[in-house]
Amino acid sequence: MSNHDAGEGHAESGAHAHHGPYVRIWAILLALLVVSVAGPLVAALIEHRPTAIAITLSTAFGIAVVKAYMVVKNFMHIDFTKRFVPYLVVTMVLFMVLLFAGTAPDVMKVKGLNWEKPAWIEANAEAAAHPAGAHGAHGDHGESGH
């Protein structure tokens, strides 16, 4: 585990990356994993629905972002590559945000604006959403599910 010598990192990016305290980072990642699994379980006990959803989302996705950032920074050594690499990664993610922003207004609008969705389509979609063979008999999927 080398010490953090900032000067060297700037001078020579082609050389070896700084090796940090990997085991400690791994332990933090595991702790975050426990929190992200426990979050929804705690949320299931809370009566107030918006709070429960907020806890689920923040523990699930907030922690996913933190974990991903830690892996990218410490394991992939993105800060020891040239500056354009993080820019490149962020740009690609932004393209996906753009795709979502342009597509979601259509795809997420299940009900039309100036037209009625025929009832039989709803009926078919309902039937498709609840597959026949998938009832019951999954008690061993140890999940409370709400």
Binding site: L99, G102, T103, D106, I121, N124, A125, A128, A129
Partner: peptide, 21 residues
């Protein structure tokens, strides 16, 4: 599967977006 089949919960417009993106 029914990713793009509106009859079973999919959406053909999604393909158009993915394609033209």
């Amino acid at each position: 599967t029914a990713f793009f089949d509106p009859n079973r919960g999919g959406d053909p417009i999604l393909w158009q977006h993915l394609f033209w993106f």
